[in-house]
């Protein structure tokens, strides 16, 4: 992705939450473990990471070990609280029923040797994390899909993304 100016956008909370469900880009901080990415790059409280992020996907694979799974450039990281139902239970991090989805479970170290790499990570927030983490993410520069913005933001689009500084209305 080339250099891009930062565009200031004002979004309603529902509009920002809709974006977060779909996925926003975090322009730096790859090459780390999931735990480091969550805590250092995104600035999420370690206790929240451990206790509330009960369902986490890396590239669509349920993650059981935040320290072994590594975030590579282009990765998609989705965050959720604990979910209902048997399917919700199976997706849960290290959950009792995790074996029921063993075919798609994240295998652990993946896609990087652990050295720092520059690149974009797509982050999605679902359910309670939308309410809990939207304000935290709004404080940092974000990449959002160009087609999600109306007006002048689209002029700053690079590779389909626009670097924005979000103000929540």
């Amino acid at each position: 992705m080339g250099e891009a100016p930062t565009v200031r956008v004002t979004l309603s909370r529902p509009a920002f939450k809709a974006l977060l469900q779909r996925g926003i880009g975090i322009p730096d901080g790859t090459g780390t473990s999931v735990r480091e990415f969550l805590q250092r790059t995104l600035g999420i409280d370690p206790a929240y990471v451990e206790e509330q992020l009960q369902t986490v996907f890396l590239d669509g694979h349920p993650v059981d070990d935040f320290d072994r799974a590594r975030v590579r450039p282009g990765a998609v990281l989705a965050l959720s609280g604990a979910m209902p139902g048997l399917a919700g239970a199976t997706m849960r991090r290290g959950g009792y029923y995790a074996r029921m989805r063993e075919g798609i479970t994240h295998a652990g170290a993946h896609g990087t040797d652990g050295s720092a790499e520059e690149g974009v990570v797509i982050v999605k927030l679902f359910n309670r994390t939308l309410a809990d983490l939207a304000e935290t993410l709004a404080k940092r520069p974000l990449l959002v899909p160009g087609d999600a913005l109306d007006g002048p933001g689209t002029e700053a689009e690079v590779d389909g993304w626009v670097l924005v500084a979000v103000t929540l209305a």
Partner: peptide, 20 residues
């Protein structure tokens, strides 16, 4: 918390992300 706030449809995003 989860079920009262979003109902059972809270699963759509999660199961979709899992590819299921």
């Amino acid at each position: 918390e989860g079920l009262p706030a979003y109902g059972t449809n809270v699963l759509t995003n999660v199961i979709n992300e899992a590819g299921g």
